Simulated assay, not measured.
Amino acid sequence: MQQILYSQGFGTRRVCTGLVEQGYVEVEGRACNDPYADVVPEGLRFRVQGTEWQYHAKAYVLLHKPAGFECSTRPSAWPSIYTLLPPPLRQRPTPKGQPGVQAVGRLDQDTTGMLLLSDDGAFIHRMSSPRHHVPKVYDITVRHALETTAVQRLLDGVVLDDDPKPVRAAACEVTAPCELRLTLTEGKYHQVKRMLAAVGNRVEQLHRSRIGGLSLPAQLAPGHWQWLTEDDLALLR
């Protein structure tokens, strides 16, 4: 039981031992007082100081990022997105590097929407690497009404100041005079804002609504998170 608590981010092994010995851990509705009790981890649900938790060998999490948060553990001016997560997700031990789940890519502090987090390095690389061309859909409000020529330029490719190779939108749909939906398969610094600036417009609001085949759940409020299911992971792939 001690090892399970440690693997889920409930503290050091010594802290986890203390939690069990002091009666703060319940398994199947009964107090567990033996830190070395044998427990099958798969499908295990337990309580720690009244908080219900389910065992996950690897953490795959979806966060509805609100505006005003930075995707950094050391934010410069705004609160960190990691403050929106419970301590166990921030403290999960990893084989190397920083403990806890890490964001799969980043969203600017004023950008809202879908953000994935995990402690699985291979998953993070697969979802964020431009080589895998994982589509990401953004709903955008711009300052000026969109013209057909601007939309076509986004599809044909625009040149950003740090890369002479044109960057193209995989798909572009105008949903209102000043609103569009943009699908990208790579992620560069401030890419959406810079692409719209390159066609003479300005982003007023930016929201990521889908990654791969998985859409942001309508019932997930800003600032809230949920575990990704196997079906969710299949849609992401």
Results as ranks from 00 to 15, higher is better:
207 H>T: 02
226 Q>G: 02
228 L>Q: 02
194 R>G: 06
97 G>L: 10
22 Q>G: 02
117 L>W: 02
128 S>W: 00
114 M>K: 03
24 Y>Q: 12
104 V>T: 11
157 G>V: 00
117 L>Q: 01
110 D>H: 09
8 Q>C: 15
131 R>T: 09
5 L>E: 03
209 S>G: 05
127 M>A: 11
218 A>Y: 00
17 T>P: 01
88 P>Y: 04
140 I>V: 15
65 K>L: 05
186 E>M: 10
68 G>F: 11
63 L>V: 06
43 G>M: 14
225 W>F: 14
171 A>V: 02
73 T>S: 10
38 D>K: 12
111 T>L: 00
11 G>H: 04
88 P>K: 01
131 R>H: 14
38 D>W: 13
166 P>C: 14
148 T>N: 10
173 E>S: 09
232 D>I: 01
234 A>P: 02
32 C>R: 05
114 M>S: 03
151 V>W: 01
12 T>C: 09
56 H>V: 03
45 R>E: 12
181 R>M: 12
179 E>Q: 14
74 R>E: 13
13 R>E: 11
55 Y>H: 14
30 R>T: 11
77 A>S: 15
27 V>N: 00
104 V>L: 08
211 I>N: 02
197 A>G: 15
24 Y>V: 05
70 E>R: 08
188 K>L: 15
51 T>M: 06
221 A>F: 10
164 P>M: 08
207 H>R: 10
130 P>A: 11
19 L>M: 11
8 Q>V: 09
214 L>R: 01
93 P>V: 09
73 T>Q: 09
132 H>F: 11
144 H>L: 05
136 K>P: 02
205 Q>T: 15
131 R>S: 13
114 M>D: 00
131 R>V: 05
148 T>A: 15
55 Y>D: 09
90 R>H: 07
62 L>Q: 00
48 V>D: 04
147 E>S: 13
79 P>Y: 06
118 S>E: 01
15 V>W: 07
185 T>N: 13
88 P>I: 02
201 N>H: 08
100 G>Y: 04
7 S>N: 14
234 A>L: 12
15 V>F: 09
150 A>D: 05
151 V>C: 12
115 L>K: 02
147 E>W: 07
92 R>P: 03
140 I>F: 00
6 Y>F: 15
190 H>M: 12
121 G>E: 01
23 G>N: 08
117 L>P: 04
119 D>M: 04
210 R>C: 05
124 I>Y: 02
185 T>E: 15
32 C>K: 00
8 Q>F: 07
163 D>Y: 10
7 S>V: 04
153 R>D: 06
113 G>C: 05
203 V>C: 05
24 Y>L: 14
49 Q>I: 07
178 C>N: 11
111 T>D: 00
73 T>H: 04
173 E>A: 10
103 A>R: 03
165 K>I: 15
213 G>Y: 06
43 G>C: 11
123 F>L: 04
49 Q>E: 14
208 R>H: 04
215 S>A: 15
142 V>T: 03
